[in-house]
């Protein structure tokens, strides 16, 4: 019976070829069309760079407002997600009883599977509910989008933190016990610093997730033309939304070229983030290699 082996090796090579060709085609196309547009003009348009950076003059034909919007969205999201995410991960790895671990783990898993568009819908419903009750003048805004994004990426951070701590060798805990450290002391002074690079890797992964997500923000406050983000309760622009919007609504060839440039920029940013996350996580793995 050689058929099974033949089919399997054909499948393997075909998959290898299709996946690499598919990705190379899409990314290559993006590079060819996007590289010419990737320069300072893409960011600031005809406004001088310093004036735009210092917000002295508005940028009309560049993506600086969208980039600034994405940056502020990321900042607010990270502020909201870091402490609860890492705390929950550490708790699950070090302190939770088996029942709690099952129960919280299940909850985290279900939430990790929630489609981001549903989270966007949740944000929309939340603000509608708030308008009916406490905040009659509330609208979708930066804070709402960041909060929904934070809930969306929370499970990722919890899982990454938990596996970074659980990947540490058992001997560390034993040593801590032998030295008479309490569990909390061991976590604070030994396990957390040791797992630091892994946790940081998880944080960077989460930043990538939050940066690329479009479905949440399009329901919770991202708009096509808002200028620089004006505050937590204002609408904002964002890079992924800009790309989405350009694909459907572009009116001129310059706008399309800018769309390609933006898509390429976002792709490069995402790749930078994931590469640095990988490097950190690999460093952690290598450090404890061979230690039982």
């Amino acid at each position: 019976m050689k058929v099974k082996e033949l089919v399997l090796s054909m499948l393997g090579w075909a998959a290898l070829a299709i996946v690499s060709l598919g990705l190379a085609g899409l990314v290559g196309f993006l590079f060819i069309r996007g590289l010419p547009a990737l320069n300072l003009r893409l960011l600031f348009g005809s406004t001088p760079a310093w004036d735009a950076l210092l917000a002295l003059r508005p940028v009309w034909d560049g993506i600086w407002p969208a980039a600034a919007g994405t940056l502020s969205l990321l900042a607010v999201t990270m502020v909201l997600v870091l402490v609860p995410g890492i705390a929950c991960g550490v708790y699950l790895a070090c302190f939770a009883s088996p029942r709690e671990r099952d129960w919280i783990g299940e909850c985290v898993d279900v939430l990790a599977g929630i489609p981001s568009i549903v989270m966007g819908l949740f944000g929309l419903e939340l603000i509608i509910l708030l308008r009916r009750t406490f905040l009659p003048r509330g609208t979708t805004c930066l804070l709402l989008a960041a909060a929904c994004l934070a809930i969306l990426v929370l499970p990722v951070l919890v899982t990454a933190t938990r596996s970074a701590v659980e990947a540490l060798p058992r001997s560390l805990t034993l040593t801590a016990d032998a030295l008479g450290l309490s569990r909390a002391q061991a976590v604070r002074h030994l396990l957390l610093p040791a797992a630091g690079p892994g946790i940081l890797g998880g944080v960077i992964l989460v930043m990538g997730r939050a940066m690329e997500d479009t479905a949440v923000i399009m329901l919770t406050g991202a708009v096509a033309n808002a200028g620089l983000p004006a505050g937590l309760t204002a609408k904002f622009e964002a890079l992924p939304f800009k790309i989405y919007y350009t694909a459907a609504q572009y009116t001129s060839s310059e706008e399309l070229a800018r769309g390609f440039g933006t898509a390429l920029l976002l792709l490069i940013l995402s790749w930078t983030l994931i590469l640095s996350a990988r490097v950190l996580q690999r460093r952690l793995a290598r450090r404890w290699e061979g230690v039982a």
Partner: peptide
């Protein structure tokens, strides 16, 4: 690994 990081919106746009 690179593919896991490609934003969905970039796939869609291309």
């Amino acid at each position: 690994t690179m593919m896991t990081a490609v934003p969905t919106v970039v796939y869609g746009f291309a």
